[in-house]
Computed example of a mutant assay.
Amino acid sequence: MHTIGTPGLWLAFSLLVVVALVVDFVVLRAGGAHKVSFKEAALWSIAWIMLAMLFNLGLWYWLDGHVGPELANETALQFLTGYVVEKALAIDNIFVFLLIFSRFGVGPELQQRALMIGILGAIVLRAILIFIGAALIARYHWILYFFGAFLVYTGVQMVRAPNDEADFEANPLLRWMRGHLRLSAEYHGTALSVVKDGVRWFTPMFVVIMLLAVTDVIFAVDSIPAIFAITEDPFVVLTSNVFAVLGLRALFFLVAGMAERFHLLNYGLAGVLSFIGVKMLIVDAWKVPIGLSLGIVALLIGASLVASRLFPKID
């Protein structure tokens, strides 16, 4: 498969992610378990966005010096478009995360820890999915049509059932854990398991973290094909995906308090998925320019946010 990712670029990306995660963990531990304020969430969101943009700028600079400005400009725009798409679709994850926290009674002071560990698991699982997807697309071009049709179908389903809530009691992972693990009914701070009378029990925090990671991967089944419509380069797909996911914890606390204000966002996301699906279906007839794709995605998301404010939800 063709990729711009040299061993040096992969190493630089990996080191940057590791350092960012270490800093995040250190700050999280120093702050202790606490309820995240809107201001704190906004500052962290800005920090993660700036980190992603700095990485994109560094990637553009390196490519400009080694392969020329044309590929550098195209790759930087692909990264930005992929990042924006993933960031927008991640908002849908947040609504489900809210349901999980509500269903399992996770207090505000414990949500940070749960999100942090859940996101780490999601990054690993997403990386596996991305490399499998890249290998399949490189070998079987027709899979792009399957991805495109799937995204259009998903977009239509989001319009038909915009407020469809997850049925956690029917969740296969939850049912498996209940059938095979000893689950305690009480939280023990941020501990994932405790030992009682020589027997290990898994806490509700463990259950929540597993559900967060798997739920994110389920949503990635939509978002990863969407980014492959923008670029088939696994380096650009993975880096834009990871940087978007890294900021998911801060984005959660930023958006959680405003979920009801943007009740029409699902329609914007449905439009994004449908547009990208059509883009994949016509890829052999017309390759939609990256700049145009970015503009349409931004317009669809922006329009849904503005419409939510102009037409408030009627209870």
Rank of each mutant, 00 (worst) to 15 (best):
P69K: 15
L77I: 14
A88V: 15
T3Y: 04
F38R: 09
V194F: 05
S45C: 14
I100C: 03
M280A: 10
L174A: 06
N266L: 14
L110V: 00
G268Y: 04
V27S: 11
L11C: 07
V207T: 07
A298I: 15
L21R: 02
H2M: 08
L300M: 11
L99R: 02
M158W: 00
S293C: 08
M205G: 02
N163D: 14
N171V: 11
I117D: 02
I296P: 03
F13I: 03
N73F: 10
N241M: 07
M116G: 10
P234D: 02
N163Q: 12
W176F: 08
L144C: 04
V217L: 15
L16Y: 12
L54H: 05
F253I: 08
L99W: 01
T81G: 12
G133P: 00
W201T: 02
L254R: 09
F228V: 06
I218L: 15
W176R: 15
G302Y: 13
V67A: 15
G189C: 03
K39H: 10
S184E: 08
L299W: 07
R160E: 01
S304R: 03
L28T: 08
V214R: 01
L9W: 08
M158P: 00
Y61C: 12
I137S: 03
V96M: 15
D24R: 14
F104Y: 10
Q112L: 03
M53P: 01
N73D: 14
T81F: 06
A213C: 11
S240I: 05
L51T: 09
M280Y: 05
D64C: 02
I314P: 00
L299D: 08
F243Q: 00
Q111A: 09
L265A: 12
I128P: 09
D167H: 13
E232G: 14
N171D: 12
G107V: 13
R178H: 11
V278R: 04
A229N: 11
I94D: 04
V18R: 04
V194P: 01
H180E: 10
L77A: 15
W62A: 08
D233W: 06
Q111E: 10
K313M: 15
T231C: 06
H34I: 07
I91W: 05
A114Q: 00
T154K: 12
L183N: 00
G277T: 08
G291T: 13
L251V: 14
S308T: 15
L71M: 13
I132F: 06
F147N: 00
I143R: 00
V159S: 04
T190E: 14
I49K: 03
Y187P: 03
A259W: 06
L110Y: 10
I100T: 00
I100D: 01
H263Q: 04
F146N: 03
F262S: 03
L144F: 15
M116V: 13
E86S: 12
L265S: 10
A307W: 15
D216H: 09
F146I: 13
L16F: 06
L89R: 05
L110R: 06
I301G: 06
V237M: 00
M53L: 15
L9T: 08
S274G: 12
G8S: 14
I276G: 09
L300V: 12
L110N: 07
V278K: 02
